[in-house]
Amino acid sequence: MDTRSVISLTKIISILALTLNFTGVYAQEAADFWDKVRFGGALGLGFGSGYTDVSIAPSAIYQFNDYAALGVGVQGTYVHQKDYYDSYIYGGSVIGLFNPIREVQLSVELEQLRVNLNVDEAYASYYTSLNFKDRDFWNTAVFFGAGYHMDNVTVGLRYNVLYSKKDLVYSDALMPFVRVYF
């Protein structure tokens, strides 16, 4: 056998041994994984005179330990203002949570949303100087947050460092939040 054959055979045996080792442990690790997953999210309803805002945003986090968690979420929102516009917003996010002490939760969240804005023709023609028109665009947000954490609930504020008045998604860079995970 030449040196290349010995190296190849060694690689194959090593990969096989690792695969068999991980397979035996996988069932226990899968059960442990799901024990550390927590589910939550948000529901939002807003109604007014000719105004409707409906949001749903389920999410899940993996709780590494008492101090750190990482998760993902999806979001869907419908906003309607009679005689002005309809908007469909959907997308996803990744969130990291850190509890330096039990009562304090710090967070960082990356959110990517697709916005479909359909402007009423009469409204658009009346405000031609503002250039209101149908638009489809992506909006990226990066939030840094801090909140008071108690059991499954955190109440706090988050700040969008990429906020722009032109993005037509959020009315302000600073927003309150209530985060719930079970």
Rank of each mutant, 00 (worst) to 15 (best):
R135K: 14
D167C: 00
T140Y: 11
G71W: 01
A30W: 13
L157Y: 02
T3M: 13
S93M: 03
S93K: 10
N99L: 05
F98N: 00
L113Q: 03
N118E: 08
A57P: 06
T10E: 12
K36S: 01
N99Y: 10
I13Q: 14
R38C: 02
Y123Q: 05
Y126I: 08
V153M: 08
M150T: 04
V94C: 02
S171R: 13
I95Y: 05
T140C: 04
F182P: 02
S129D: 15
T3L: 15
Q81F: 01
N139F: 05
N118I: 08
S164K: 15
Y88W: 14
S5E: 13
V153L: 11
V119Q: 05
V25N: 09
S87T: 15
V74Q: 06
Y51P: 04
Y90M: 07
A31Y: 00
G41R: 08
L162E: 01
S8F: 10
A68Q: 08
V153R: 06
D66F: 03
A57R: 14
G46V: 08
G156I: 00
E103D: 09
S49N: 13
Y67N: 07
N160K: 00
F137M: 06
P100M: 01
T10H: 10
Y163F: 11
E111C: 03
H149A: 13
T10S: 12
Y67H: 10
D66R: 14
V54Q: 07
N65T: 02
Y78G: 08
V54R: 11
A30M: 14
S87K: 14
F132H: 07
Y90V: 02
R38M: 05
A122L: 09
A141W: 02
F143V: 03
I7Y: 13
K11I: 09
M175I: 05
F132L: 11
F39V: 10
V72K: 03
N160C: 06
Y148I: 01
H149V: 06
L18W: 08
D35Q: 12
S125R: 14
Y123P: 10
V79W: 00
G48L: 09
V153T: 10
N152K: 11
V94T: 12
Y127K: 10
G76Q: 01
Y51C: 02
F64V: 09
V54E: 10
G91S: 05
P100R: 07
V37R: 09
V79R: 12
S125Y: 11
V178D: 05
